[in-house]
């Protein structure tokens, strides 16, 4: 405890000593400055195992800069960071999570530091925020999922709108958009396409709501609800690789794509190490590692996940961040009202 406090104090002093411009211009200078900082903290929504693999590579690349990686799902991560912000003492250096709208809000509130990471240039422009406040560290697809033992191939829904049909009554489950970051874009785009009748139909069809993606997958896997309206691909493929009787449903009318964004706060305690990590995370090497672990990458030069089709072969839907921010409250309220929750 004592040691930690001392270290933190030292680090704060160091950070103060660095001029307001913060990070050095060249990568070498950045590395040197980061070395002086000696450590950094990374909140990641990814599994611990994956974070560990990344950390191993980091240690090889930047020995002497200790990477404290903390798995914090979006649900716990955003409140933690907001609490740190409110206390005016940010302790996170780098974070990535599945809530693109929050990144946009953070940018507007001036919370994030702009950083032209050298590796940003390898990402398509649509995956990098214009001011380089954040960029996509990976991409999730959000197809449907079904239990291959409980649902015959012929009964697998083709289109998202099929799910409101009577034959799927009592069979479907999804996370609620209110608490699941990746669920909101899916329902928002669905309502954009089909109108609120889609949600109403689901509700009438005894559709079951769960709090998050994990809970949905468990329901499907267990067969309690054999069809998940949507789930993240890395979860589905991860489970399939373990032999679970699951399969994704890439709906004919489109599959929702979500970016997992990556950024650093302006007041990060280790600004140089933070920038070093950001650049590192979008490097080809790490992106390849992520792809191997069932994530899609925004980079064009690292291929597709082991079980995943090429993105170009799918009809992809991407929600508009502006709409995500604006529609939020009223959308949730209306959504809930169809499910009898005022």
């Amino acid at each position: 405890m004592m040691a930690f406090t001392l270290r933190l104090a030292g680090v704060v002093l160091l950070a103060l000593a660095i001029p307001a411009a913060g990070w050095a211009a060249s990568m070498d200078a950045l590395h040197r400055a980061a070395k002086k900082e000696g450590t950094l903290t990374w909140y990641s929504n990814s599994k611990k195992k994956i974070n560990q693999k990344v950390a191993k590579e980091w240690k090889k690349a930047y020995p002497g800069i200790k990477l404290r990686h903390i798995r914090k799902g979006t649900g716990a991560q955003v409140p933690t960071i907001e609490a740190e912000r409110m206390a005016k003492r940010v302790s996170v250096d780098v974070m990535n999570n599945t809530d693109p709208a929050t990144f946009l809000r953070w940018t507007r509130e001036g919370f994030l530091a702009p950083f032209k990471a050298p590796n940003d240039k390898d990402l398509p422009a649509e995956f990098v925020e214009k001011g380089h406040h954040y960029r996509a560290v990976s991409i999730y697809l959000h197809p449907g999922v079904y239990n291959t033992k409980k649902v015959k191939t012929s009964d697998v829904p083709k289109k998202l709108s099929d799910l409101t049909k009577a034959k799927y009554k009592g069979k479907t489950v999804s996370a609620t958009p209110r608490t699941s970051g990746v669920e909101f874009p899916k329902y928002l785009t669905a309502v954009n396409r089909y109108g609120w009748d889609f949600v109403k139909g689901l509700a009438k069809n005894d559709h079951l709501l769960q709090k998050g993606q994990g809970a949905v997958l468990r329901m499907v896997q267990k067969g309690e609800r054999p069809i998940g309206v949507g789930n993240t691909t890395y979860r589905i493929w991860g489970a399939m690789k373990k032999g679970r009787p699951l399969k994704p449903i890439f709906y004919e009318d489109g599959t929702v794509m979500i970016t997992v964004n990556l950024g650093t706060p302006k007041d990060a305690p280790h600004p140089n190490a933070a920038r070093l990590l950001i650049n590192f995370l979008v490097s080809k090497k790490i992106q390849k590692l992520l792809v191997k672990n069932h994530f899609y990458s925004a980079r064009k030069d690292v291929g597709n996940p082991p079980l995943g089709p090429a993105l170009s072969s799918l009809k992809l839907i991407r929600a508009d961040n502006e709409q995500l921010i604006k529609a939020r409250g009223p959308f949730f309220d209306k959504f809930d009202s169809f499910f009898g929750m005022k």
């Binding site: 709208a101 609620t176 499910f339 009898g340």
Partner: peptide, 21 residues
Amino acid sequence: GLSGRFHVLTTKIYVLFRHPP
């Protein structure tokens, strides 16, 4: 509650905290 389609005070409070917290 989510599956049973009802709110209690705490889940309602939780809703109030979110987006943005």
